[in-house]
Each structure stands twice: as structure tokens, then as C-alpha cells.
């Protein structure tokens, strides 16, 4: 299998993620695959929730906090501005309270609560989670590519989806029970109509969104998760451990991509000693990788002569990855 055959033989897998340790090439590979899929006529949204704004770098264009920005035909990129999202959201909640109760200012206690809740790190996490839900549930792209933050965070995100999922199901059930008691009381009082439970409505809305998102993440038919690694000892070890952990969370791992592979031919020419040594080291680690992941390796990505930024460079890498016979 190659990356290309995975995409071609499993067209239902429309939610694509590249995971891996920091700096190994997750963003580069996401962008390269997004580019190739778009050039095959698929509508692709590549999105990031990383405040580091790496998509702006790779596409050499400021897209931070601007919604989906067209990059080329069929390709859009989006960077979520989590801070602004939280600020707007706080305003929205305040306004809702004012409107609902006809207050001219938000009670101090409530305002303090809003401020305190927003200052927690969990606020940013849950806001980002919700932003991702927003993006993936709208459903008008053929492919959604998640530009993930490093492994730990990705795993955290996945576990969050599970926890949120359980939490929201429980709360909704509790609320439904409360509703049944209301029903009884209303019947006893011979009241015909009962006011609708707005909170239950909100909970059902939240539940639907969280359920949808967490289902996507673990759905073998719709989701593909690729690990990026490089031929280095520690990275191979870490990747093996991470893969185990991920499978515990039912993440559908589709295969491994080995990045930054030095061309073996290079070793034959006149090259400095240290480079020759590096190539020899890499060859050893390539054998380790082969032994660990074997048939699950989908691509060997060559080390390019410079950073991959700009559509020209991305296109070159996409050609190497998808058009030419891959290194294996």
C-alpha cells in the first residue's frame, strides 16, 4: 500500500489526521496530501487549531482567524483563533443573559463566574474542541484534514472527546429524568401544557455535536490516522509507544509515513564524513522501522533541500509522494 492507494481504495475515509511528535512533518504532510487531493478534484479543508499558526507559514499567507481561506482550486485552509473565539463567546453569553431577563447589566456574581471560567486552561481546550466540532459537522467538503498539534495533545484531544461524550450523555439523562418529574407534577396539578425545557434543548444540541465529533474520531470507515516518524532511535521508540496508546483509544491507525529520508545514492558521491555517517545511521534505523512497522509503511518522504513552504515546494513534494513510484 502507498498513501495514494489508501486514498484511492478507501474514498469514504474523509477525515484525515497526521500525528507524530513535534516538528516531524505533520503540517508538511497534511498540506502535501491536501494539495494532491485538491488537484484530483476533491474539495479539501485543511484546518488547524494551533495558535502557532503553522498553515500561514506553509502557505506563505496570513490566514489566522479568517475562516476558511481559499488557497487554490478546491483547497481551503483555516486557522482557528481560539482566544478570539472565547472572547466572542463570553460576549454572546452576557448578551443572552441581559436579553433573557431584561437586566441592564450582568449580575456581578455571574460576571465573575464567566471571567473565572474563561481563565481556566480547560476553557481554551474545550473552546478548541468545540471549534473543531463546528468545522467537521458542517459537512460540505470532501476531505477534512486536521493539522494536529504534537502527539500528547492529539491524544489528549481524543481522550477529551471520550470524556465529553460520557459526560454529556449522563447530564442529558439526568435532565430528562427531571423533566419526567415535572411532567408528573404538572399532571397532578391538571396543567395541560408544560413549558418546554430550554436547558434540555441546549443539552441535546451539545450532545449531538459532541457525539458526532467523537464518533468521527474513532470511525474506521470514515477516518484515517497516519503516524509521521523519522529514522531516529528515540522517535522510533516513541512512535511505537504512541501507536499502542492510540489503539487503546480506538483510533483507526491507517499507516506510517517515514519523513526526512536522505537519498541513499548520496552516499556514493563526494560528501563530507559526517553526512556519510548520518546516511549510514539512517540506513540502520530504516531497517528498524521496517522491522517494527513493515507493511504498514505507506511512504518514504525524501529530505528536501530546503524547508517546505509555498505551493511550488508543496507541489514538488506531492509529485514525489503521489506520482513517482514511492521509495519502497
Amino acid at each position: 500500500m502507498s498513501l495514494r492507494t489508501v486514498f484511492e481504495s478507501q474514498p469514504d475515509r474523509r477525515y484525515i489526521m497526521f500525528g507524530g511528535k513535534g516538528g516531524l512533518g505533520k503540517t508538511t504532510l497534511s498540506a502535501t496530501c491536501a494539495f494532491w487531493l485538491a488537484s484530483q478534484g476533491k474539495r479539501v479543508l485543511l484546518f488547524s487549531v494551533d495558535p502557532q499558526a503553522s498553515l500561514s507559514d506553509i502557505f506563505q499567507q496570513d490566514i489566522f482567524g479568517k475562516g476558511p481561506v481559499p488557497i487554490m482550486r478546491n483547497l481551503w485552509a483555516q486557522e482557528v483563533d481560539a482566544d478570539r473565539r472565547i472572547r466572542d463567546y463570553q460576549e454572546e453569553i452576557r448578551k443572552k443573559i441581559l436579553d433573557m431577563y431584561g437586566f441592564d447589566r450582568v449580575p456581578e456574581e455571574i460576571d465573575n463566574y464567566i471571567a473565572a471560567a474563561s481563565a481556566e486552561p480547560a476553557m481554551e481546550e474545550s473552546a478548541i474542541f468545540d471549534a473543531v466540532v463546528d468545522i467537521v459537522v458542517q459537512g460540505d467538503y470532501d476531505y477534512y484534514m486536521y493539522d494536529l498539534v504534537p502527539l500528547g495533545h492529539a491524544l489528549y484531544y481524543l481522550s477529551m472527546a471520550k470524556v465529553y461524550d460520557e459526560w454529556i450523555n449522563k447530564i442529558t439523562r439526568l435532565r430528562e429524568e427531571m423533566r419526567q418529574y415535572d411532567q408528573v407534577a404538572a399532571t397532578m396539578r391538571r396543567e395541560k401544557t408544560m413549558e418546554e425545557d430550554k436547558i434540555l434543548g441546549e443539552l441535546l444540541y451539545i450532545k449531538e455535536r459532541i457525539n458526532a465529533s467523537s464518533q468521527i474520531l474513532t470511525d474506521r470507515r470514515r477516518t484515517a490516522f497516519f503516524f509521521v516518524l523519522v529514522p531516529e532511535e528515540m522517535i522510533i521508540l516513541d512512535t511505537r509507544k504512541a501507536a499502542e496508546l492510540f489503539s487503546k483509544f480506538d483510533v483507526p491507525i491507517s499507516g506510517y509515513v517515514v519523513n526526512r529520508v536522505l537519498p541513499p545514492d548520496l552516499g556514493k558521491g563526494q560528501i563530507p564524513e559526517y553526512l556519510r555517517n548520518r546516511i549510514a545511521m539512517q540506513q540502520k534505523y530504516m531497517r528498524d522501522i521496517e522491522a517494527s512497522f513493515g507493511a504498514q509503511i505507506l511512504a518514504h518522504v525524501p529530505e528536501m533541500e530546503r524547508d517546505i513552504t509555498g505551493l511550488g515546494m508543496i507541489e514538488r513534494l506531492a509529485k514525489r509522494l503521489f506520482e513517482e513510484v514511492s521509495a519502497r
Binding site: 463570553q90 453569553i93 455571574i110 474545550s126 474542541f129 454529556i168 447530564i171 441546549e202
Partner: peptide, 14 residues
Amino acid sequence: LPPYYSLRLLPYVT
């Protein structure tokens, strides 16, 4: 609970 979602309920329990 995730604070983003508890804020969403806040107006109703104010």
C-alpha cells in the same frame, strides 16, 4: 465539566 459548555447553560440557571 468542560467550561465552554457550562457557560452555554449559564443563562438558563442565572
